[in-house]
């Protein structure tokens, strides 16, 4: 699965940090049993690299161990430290297939290997803002989702795209336990889905995605709150009507279909004006920063919402 490339994660992470990280990982492995946990989900990843992208931010990527040990993946536990413990036990079905249909001329079911051949892999360093008020910077590996969606030739009827996460009731929480409907569903307008920033990601930090981050492939929509970036996708459907999405179904007054990052539009239970950047500062002290409209991607995406009232269409 790996590709030749001129950019490795050593290019974006200072050597001292990753050397230290490796030393720490080695120590941690040696001292197994002392404090088990944070990294138990790592170790099965394969190398996966991509070419530098003009879409990348110059901000410093969040340490890998934070990105891979602090996840919202409700199927594997509703606490953010749970997926790193539970998800690695899940065996990703092989071959992984993605069924693409609905309002399209050529419905297709593609497996992961075929998808990986559709476009050259890129490394895109994106800001990622969670609706809960924290943010990270992630060096994703992948390519624009449009490369995949073009394969099925959407018809004129296709206005929206619905996505679904693989659901295995034996390995995952029940909808009742998690409190939200499963299989997890998300959706985008077709123009949002086809936007070059919308990324289909198969890796991060130069490696394939860990299970807790949405292996083997997921969306990354950097100008929307994190829950829009659906994980472990196995079904994509083009639709005429706006599809149901998990969180908006659960609490429509709290989560909308669009869920664009918007510092002016507070969540009913917390402010969205600022965020804590994870992985910085002792105990996270002094990491609060103002949140930017469209998470700082307004120049690229504001045009998609011309004339729309974003306070109502949240």
């Amino acid at each position: 699965m790996s590709r030749l490339s001129d950019l490795r994660y050593s290019d974006v992470t200072p050597q001292s940090i990753y050397v230290n990280r490796r030393r720490f990982l080695a120590t941690a492995a040696a001292a197994a049993g002392a404090i088990a946990g944070p990294f138990s989900g790592q170790g099965r990843a394969a190398a996966l690299t991509g070419a530098k992208s003009a879409f990348s931010t110059t901000e410093k990527p969040t340490p890998q161990q934070v990105i891979t040990s602090y996840n919202n993946y409700y199927e594997f536990g509703t606490g953010k430290d749970e997926p790193v413990r539970n998800a690695p036990k899940w065996k990703v079905p092989a071959p992984w297939t993605v069924q693409i249909g609905g309002a399209v001329a050529k419905p297709k079911t593609l497996d992961l290997d075929a998808i990986l051949k559709l476009a050259p892999l890129e490394e895109r360093i994106y800001r990622h803002r969670c609706v809960e008020g924290w943010s990270i910077v992630v060096p994703w590996i992948g390519f624009s989702l449009s490369a995949l969606l073009k394969q099925v030739e959407p018809t004129a009827k296709a206005k929206y795209v619905a996505f679904e996460t693989y659901y295995d009731p034996k390995a995952m929480l029940s909808a009742r336990e998690a409190g939200i409907p499963f299989p997890y569903k998300e959706g985008l307008r077709v123009d949002e889905a086809m936007h070059p920033l919308t990324l289909l990601s198969m890796g991060l930090y130069g490696e394939t995605l860990p299970n807790q981050n949405g292996a083997p492939l997921r969306l990354v929509i950097p100008w929307k709150y994190g829950f829009k970036s659906i994980k472990s996708i196995n079904k994509i459907t083009f639709t005429e009507k706006q599809p149901d999405t998990a969180w908006a179904t659960y609490a429509p007054n709290e989560y909308g279909f669009y869920s664009n990052v918007n510092p002016k539009r507070d969540h009913p239970r917390w402010s969205q004006a600022s965020e804590n950047r994870l992985g910085e500062g002792f105990l996270g002290k002094g990491t609060r920063r103002p949140t930017e409209m469209f998470n700082g991607y307004a120049a690229q995406v504001a045009g998609l919402y011309n004339g729309m009232d974003l306070m109502r269409n949240y």
Binding site: A28, I35, G37, P38, F39, V66, I67, S69, Y70, L278
Partner: peptide
Amino acid sequence: GQPGNLTG
């Protein structure tokens, strides 16, 4: 950096 004893 942060070894993650207090989560991310």
